[in-house]
Design a binder for these strands. Structure first.
Length: 881
RNA sequence: GGGCGCAUAGCUCAGCGGUAGAGCGCUGCCCUUACAAGGCAGAUGUCACUGGUUCGAUCCCAGUUGCGCCCACCA
């Protein structure tokens, strides 16, 4: 903790012990949330102290793009990360949740270029320096938007440690890693076929290419003449201008006579060789393939095997550069023009036919990718990827849920070298300088560039994921040996989507292991699914089902959104969300609000020691017993990132057990007053105190408002996380279970009889000698039973679990309704009797089933028999209709 | 082409060898002095299909069908 939370001006008690009556009857989130958040920040609750002696707990945020705004996916992951850090902070850890943003090279550059285009300008018009200046300005203007949204969500991040992938410290980290890897030849320059986006005008890596099935046309073209001819098939006819061979399978007898021969390439004055290559599939098409080494990765490989020349015929914008009639045509125009010309020459042997094939598109702008031969920088991933795989394989890093680790392995075990250079202007410039004599110098962060004529820096920048990959340690000060780095690295858990395993997770693993001497960047990886709409459909602009989380937060409160997201968070699975569900969560928050308000009005308190169990009623002991169990249950779920289950457990415990049953059962105790009331008031205070603390990480705002009011203390943010008291009371739990059963049964009877819920009915309770004797008053109150008068004649008797309840309905009983209900129940009980009987007569079952299961079946049979007897008695007692 | 996952109430999803669960929705009654954003009671399922293992299968195994996702150098 920082000085803010220690003794000091901020430590005074807020005037938070408002009289309960002052609390409005409905929770109004919008009014309190932002105020509470700013108070937390001002008090420094979220600031981590590297010098503290508490055990550290660290999460670095997946840095959102500066260009972006908060979408539901962020809100979802942030809710989980916030809950994890808030809980650990309450558990006494030095919890650091480190925020920041990613410069998002290509995405941001595109955005600013779009803006320029609206002004009729291009980045070239501005020049590199002015353009990057403009991007920085843009970042200043819009980049902080998402940070404001994070505050709205309640993200308890340490704002004093906010980082940006392009800030100075992170740039030093980038340069340091680059130089070290360059010197160790893990980074190298090579000319290869890369994925080129003719619109973004840059290379992109394999995973930045989205493949879609596109309708293309497969045309078959005859190369050469007569005996010396061969038919090839292609979907990219325009690349034929760059063909430097035709390849056939070496064993393909159809073409044996051509191997080693040269044939005429149509539309050109060139002859190209026919080469044998085992990678040609004789079954596909004609079994002969045109080879364009400069414009196709496979062809490039064939070219290398046969020392074929590479002939570039398309420029960076996808325009034909080959001399001749097609020069200057766009690749798609050239395609039609060339097919037309070939047809005219009678070289199209089979008419072109529709052909669906997978075509790569730029993931940033959807432009069709053009494979292109060019000189780029690469990371040699072999040893790094192996280490990244091993760290998970040997258990140093755990992936949750475990079955998604196969996706991780699939990637790291088959990784190709990573193209890291981008022909962009926005990003970390490659720290390599070229001299006039062909010198190549890679510089570290403190080294001065060479001076003198003819020296120039590489013009490319690094893939944005290069700096993201350093995030877990660069944000903590690396390469400096900072206190933060020593204290908070490695981080405890990475919370991110399974869709980003390749882009980010694997790369952080590689870089972390490499730069931090084999220490993986996190202990656990908690993978989340994607947020989808209420029908499980992907949210996308084209569907029109995208929701701005701010809208829902404004309407229902941040807590409601957070609780909804947490409730849907089953590890690694997608989360559907709809407005109705957020409403339901808002209702839950309101329920918490009102239940606490009621409790305060009835004297619930946290003051003084908890009374001895001997002084408590059964319901007091029951709810405390359940409370302890819930604490342990919730802790278990946190350990496995089971947010849906812990939310569900808390929801039902709070609403069903505490708010419905316990609160209702204690009403008569409170009315009666006395010592019993004091005991229950203290118990209710205890239950709410613990419950609000348990709920706080998920719904921080409403719990803060209520907890400070309830306890008069500073803030639940810095309260202790509840510990299971260990108190359990099995008899009390059973007693309350019977009580619930009796009450429910009578209520059902009343409902069936059409009695108004408020209508008082003379009733007689035979409770003496049963465990429920002490509950008579509560039962009478809940069931609206009046004392029976002189002329009481029972017309209905409901024996449940040994308790008999008789009601005098003054002859007004609806016999038909009651007979119908009883007959139905009788049928069910008889069925149960048959089924359990069959089981217990089954020798195999008795021999092999575990004892507790057999006992359970026996108990069920006994219960069924009792039910039958009881129901039959009741049926007999009914007046004839 | 390779790999993975899913099929459970009207909808969205939990569960998982031993009496089918939740939320929302639905039906009926109720503005009961905490809450109508609420209370009480209730209805609703060949747990995709076919076989197998088992005393017992929604759950395990095999196959079928239908969806979804990931990977791949589909000329």
């Amino acid at each position: 903790m920082t000085e803010n939370t220690q003794q000091g001006p901020h430590n005074h008690h807020e005037p938070s012990t408002a009289a309960p009556a002052d609390l409005p009857t409905q929770y109004a989130p919008a009014e309190v949330e932002s105020e509470l958040y700013e108070r937390w920040v001002a008090r420094g609750y979220f600031e981590a102290d590297a010098k503290s002696d508490k055990p550290p707990y660290t999460i670095v945020i997946p840095p959102p793009n500066v260009t972006g705004s908060l979408h539901l996916g962020h809100a979802f992951q942030h809710t989980l990360m916030d809950a994890l850090t808030r809980r650990k902070r309450m558990q006494g850890h030095e919890a650091l949740w480190l925020p920041g943003m990613d410069h998002a090279g290509i995405a941001t550059q595109n955005k600013v270029e779009q803006q320029l285009a609206e002004e009729g300008k291009s980045r070239q018009d501005l020049g590199r320096a002015e353009f990057t200046e403009r991007v920085w300005q843009w970042k200043e203007d819009y980049g902080g938007r998402i940070l404001g949204q994070m505050r709205r969500l309640g993200d308890g991040v340490d704002w004093t440690r906010e980082r940006f992938t392009m800030d100075e410290g992170l740039s030093r980290a980038v340069q340091t890693v680059f130089k070290r890897m360059h010197d160790e030849e893990l980074i190298y320059q090579a000319e290869r076929i890369i994925n080129w986006c003719p619109r973004c005008l840059t290379a992109i890596s394999d995973i930045e290419v989205d493949y879609q099935d596109d309708e293309g046309e497969l045309v078959s073209i005859r190369y050469g003449e007569g005996e010396h001819s061969v038919v090839v098939a292609t979907t990219r006819a325009e690349t034929m201008l760059g063909d430097t061979a035709v390849a056939v399978h070496p064993d393909d007898e159809r073409y044996a006579h051509l191997i080693g021969q040269r044939i005429k390439l149509p539309l050109t004055d060139r002859d190209i060789p026919v080469v044998p290559d085992v990678h040609v599939n004789p079954e596909f098409g004609t079994g002969a393939v045109k080879v364009t080494p400069a414009h196709d990765p496979n062809d490039f490989a064939i070219g290398q095997r046969h020392q074929l020349p590479t002939l570039t015929v398309l420029d960076e914008r996808g325009v034909i550069t080959a001399h001749g009639p097609y020069e200057g045509l766009d690749r798609f125009e050239a395609r039609s023009a060339i097919v037309a010309a070939l047809r005219e020459q009678g070289r199209i042997v089979a008419e072109k036919r529709p052909y669906t094939h997978s075509v790569g598109h730029c993931s940033r702008c959807s432009t069709t990718i053009e494979p292109r031969l060019s000189l780029q920088w690469w990371v040699s991933v072999g040893p790094l990827a192996r280490a990244a795989g091993d760290a998970v394989r040997d258990g140093r890093v755990e992936i949750h849920p475990a079955d998604l680790s196969s996706r991780y392995f699939e990637w790291v075990d088959n990784m190709h070298d990573w193209c890291i250079s981008r022909q962009l202007w926005w990003g970390h410039r490659i720290p390599v300088w070229y001299g006039p004599e062909g010198e190549v110098v890679c510089l570290g962060p403190d080294e001065q560039p060479p001076t003198g004529e003819g020296w120039h820096q590489d013009t490319d920048v690094l893939d944005t994921w290069f700096s993201s990959g350093l995030w877990p340690f660069s944000t903590l000060g690396w390469p400096e040996e900072t206190a933060d780095l020593r204290r908070f690295y490695p981080t405890d858990v990475l919370v991110t989507g399974y869709d980003i395993i390749f882009f980010w997770v694997a790369r952080m693993m590689m870089f972390g292991l490499y730069a931090m001497d084999g220490t993986p960047p996190f202990r656990s990886i908690a993978l989340t699914g994607l947020v989808r709409d209420a029908h499980g459909k992907k949210m996308s602009k084209s569907f029109g089902n995208v929701v701005d989380p701010l809208d829902w937060m404004e309407a229902y409160g941040s807590d409601a959104l957070r609780f909804t997201l947490a409730s849907g968070a089953n590890p690694g699975t997608d989360v559907p969300i709809g407005e109705d569900w957020v409403k339901a969560s808002r209702n839950f928050a309101n329920k918490i609000w009102n239940a606490t308000r009621y409790a305060l009005m009835n004297g619930a308190t946290v003051r003084g020691p908890l009374p001895e169990p001997a002084e408590m009623t059964a319901e007091d002991r029951w709810i405390l017993s359940r409370l302890g169990a819930v604490v342990t249950e919730v802790d278990g779920y946190y350990d496995d990132f089971q947010f849906a289950r812990l939310s569900d457990a808390l929801y039902h415990f709070a609403w069903d057990e505490v708010f419905d049953w316990y609160v209702e059962l204690t009403k008569t105790t409170f009315q009666r007053g006395g010592r019993a009331a004091e005991v229950s008031q203290r118990v209710l205070g205890e239950v709410l105190d613990v419950l609000l603390r348990l709920l706080h990480p998920i719904v921080p705002f409403v719990t803060e408002s209520l907890w400070t009011t309830l306890t008069g203390r500073e803030s639940v943010v810095v309260a202790d996380w509840p510990v299971d008291s260990g108190f359990r009371d099995e008899p009390a739990e059973q007693e309350v279970a019977v009580l619930q059963q009796v009450i429910t049964e009578v209520r059902r009877f009343r409902a069936d009889q059409g009695l108004q819920p408020g209508q008082r009915v003379p009733g007689r309770l035979a409770l003496t000698g049963t465990p429920l004797a002490a509950h008579e008053e509560a039962i009478r109150s809940l069931l609206r039973l009046e004392p029976a008068g002189e002329d009481f004649t029972a017309t209905a008797a409901l024996p449940v679990a040994g308790v008999t309840v008789e009601l005098d309905l003054s002859g007004a009983i609806d016999v038909d309704a009651e007979r119908k209900r009883l007959t139905k129940d009788l049928g069910l009980a008889e069925k149960e009797l048959r089924q359990t009987g069959a089981k217990l007569e089954n020798a195999g079952f008795l021999a092999k089933a575990p004892e507790d299961v057999v006992d359970k079946i026996r108990a069920r049979r006994v219960a069924a028999q009792e039910d039958i007897t009881r129901i039959q008695e009741q049926l007999e007692r009914l007046p004839r209709g």
